[in-house]
């Protein structure tokens, strides 16, 4: 798997687990999972870009 696919897979699985654990209703779980998943991706990409200058 590519690094991005690894990160996406990790974010998806963890988001689902945390959503089921921390919310009681189905709709709340779906909302939480979506928010958590996209937060994982956005923050990871943002940190990646912040580190970009140090890679050269």
């Amino acid at each position: 798997m590519s690094h991005f696919a690894d990160m996406t897979w990790f974010a998806l699985v963890i988001s689902v687990a945390l959503a089921v654990m921390s919310r009681r209703t189905t709709i709340d779980r779906v909302k939480y999972a979506f928010m958590s998943f996209f937060a994982f991706l956005l923050i990871s990409i943002a940190i990646g870009w912040l580190m970009f200058p140090f890679s050269h």
Binding site: W9, F10, V13, I14, V16, A17, V20
Partner: peptide
């Protein structure tokens, strides 16, 4: 079941 699948997937 969901917890089993998530731990197994990871």
């Amino acid at each position: 079941v969901i917890y089993f699948l998530t731990v197994a997937a990871l």
